[in-house]
Design a binder for these strands. Structure first.
Lengths: 344, 344
DNA sequence: ATATTTTAGGCAATCGATTGCATTTATCAA
DNA sequence: TTGATAAATGCAATCGATTGCCTAAAATAT
């Protein structure tokens, strides 16, 4: 295994009888170098197959042009799309993206964040795990003057940049739509209330009902139904009520909505006629179920781009006062057949 | 913006009146250090909020415990799952994962690979872009003695580790299944033949037909149908043939199969009775279409884990002769309603 | 009590690129 | 022709951690 050493600027310098500093200047396109020399260095570097050692450069410059990302799961539609959008922006800027997944576990989240701090990344982008714990690890990021951008699931009390969906708004619009379609007993599938996104969605649900003068009935609010199976289970119980709902808003996810739909289909309850169903996230599959599922689009790729742009814009004119800036992405209701009783 | 300097080993050394080397030894758990001293250093480091500077360490040690990944699209089901599986393994080993997407463009792939080489990562994991070009960039990786693991879509002529699905096998099994279900004119939707995975699937299709004595009919093989739209278009044309197929194997993707299904549904052609449909990849949605779609599972998360394990195993007992090792992941046919005419 | 081995810790070079400052060379003005 | 200025290049320190080599002290053997 012949380990051919990498070419360094010293190798180039020696070959050209120059100082390493000149080579460095030529490569970094400094203006303190003669045009001819620069051309010569560039040519020689290419010939010698030179590739800069990023670690040396970063060490000396004291910064690492890298953005670290920590998400619960990489292979979840929403997150993988955010990452895709973010990567688009970071790549254009010549930045790298380092990715960790927390698997919804707090301990892994902490480990991931620390690893990124060690790398001295210039920014950490995070959506916190469902399993909440202390947020010392995030405070540390701030103390070290590493930019912190939280998105979607955030620690509210921490003063950082935040990029959020307006969850209350999304839920509100969904429920208003259900009411306008003539549904009168609208049930809610809730997510874990430790996460503010689920609290906000619940608020939106309540706000809409109140605005239209509907009662808020606790028997129609079902806690912790955020998978397909739990959604199905919740549906079975809700439909067994003496006075069952005529619509179910699965505010947790489209997967929960899918569980609802399956139960309805199995029981022969026609959707949308006898039961309206609305999900959250606009997963690709919602378009192709029968009937297709009404849901809320979160513009995930766009959200990723927004995060990236936020970082690079702040880098330039970093404003100490702006540390807490919050960007809101307005979600959009996607009306499909599972709630469409009336012609629009 | 007060920029409080990071604590370094020198700070700790000074505080304890020790040499930096001793601090380093204590932190790296060397055996050349007294147990008490070690404990003291560890305690002080924690108090002073010390975090190692990974760049300095990596520079000195000449390696970067990082695996770089280049895939066409991060947010594609198959790839995001492979990455998730890979991350699982790399994280356990304390390795980082750096991710780039090529967007199917050769130029971006080259840029991404070069960025990773600059970072001096210890391994590059790649699935090449559909837009093929020279593979000098990959040759360079090898020349620099960085491990290269190709997966799924590979440059065959390059001697590297490869982790593959047995595409021929998968396609073969699918077509045999169709034949056993009584389908007699089985059409094939092909992907770009520059990519070997699509060539192999075609081979599997042909092999199955031949084995059962069926003719290979070029009019039933439709090139480049690898999106939903192209799949639908292909189906329309195939069904307009004087002697149309009674089954369509969308070897390119489940999305193409979905396009087939939609056309069939629109035309009122019953599936699976009059038209059998089989996709490829086992996308989540194939389970919930009506009818559900028969497809081939690629064990993507498992594939990611295999890639990671391959790297770490080879690191230990690196065997020069083993440079070309190929791991095959055997795909599995998932039979669903879109091809099920007979009771099993 | 002396010689030998272990153990703990210090010194200083090193990884490769960058950069402030010093120096040389070229250019121009007087 | 000489002095002043600008341009190009060299020198050497630096970023922070690691590690080979060396020395002093402690532990063990003779």
């Amino acid at each position: 295994m012949k380990r051919q050493k990498r070419t360094t600027i010293y190798d180039i310098a020696q070959k050209l009888s120059l100082a390493a500093s000149s080579v460095s200047r030529a490569l970094s396109d400094s203006n303190k170098i003669n045009a001819e020399t620069k051309a010569l260095v560039l040519k020689t570097a290419a010939e010698m197959n030179y590739q800069q050692n990023a670690m040396a450069s970063n060490l000396r410059k004291g910064n690492n042009p890298t953005i670290g990302v920590v998400v619960p799961r990489i292979n979840q539609y929403f997150f993988s799309n955010v990452i895709a959008g973010l990567e688009e922006v970071t790549f254009k800027q010549g930045y790298n993206l380092v990715i960790c997944q927390s698997n919804e576990l707090h301990a892994r989240e902490v480990e991931g964040v620390n690893a990124l701090v060690n790398q001295n990344v210039s920014c950490i982008v995070i959506s916190i795990a469902a399993e909440k714990g202390s947020f010392d690890h995030l405070q540390q990021v701030l103390d070290r003057n590493i930019q912190l951008i939280q998105f979607d699931r955030v620690v509210e009390e921490l003063e950082t940049f935040k990029v959020l969906n307006n969850n209350k708004q999304g839920a509100y619009e969904a429920v208003v739509h259900l009411i306008e379609q003539g549904y009168r007993r609208i049930a809610l599938l809730e997510g874990p209330q430790e996460l503010h996104i689920f609290r906000e969605r619940k608020e939106g649900y309540i706000a809409a009902l109140q605005e239209y003068g509907f009662p808020i009935l606790s028997e129609l609010m079902y806690a912790n139904a955020w998978t397909k199976e739990l959604g199905a289970q919740a549906t079975t119980q809700l439909l067994d009520l003496p006075n069952p709902p005529d619509a179910i808003f699965a505010s947790t996810s489209d997967f929960a909505a899918l569980g609802v739909l399956e139960v309805a289909n199995n029981k022969g309850i026609p959707t949308p006629e006898a039961l309206g169903i609305c999900g959250y996230s606009n997963e690709p599959f919602t378009e192709i179920t029968s009937p297709s599922i009404t849901t809320i689009d979160q513009f995930s790729v766009e959200m990723g781009r927004k995060i990236g742009n936020l970082h690079f814009r702040e880098m330039e004119n970093f404003s100490p006062e702006g540390k807490t800036k919050t960007l809101n992405v307005r979600p959009k209701l996607i009306v499909r057949n599972s709630t469409l009783r009336k012609l629009q």
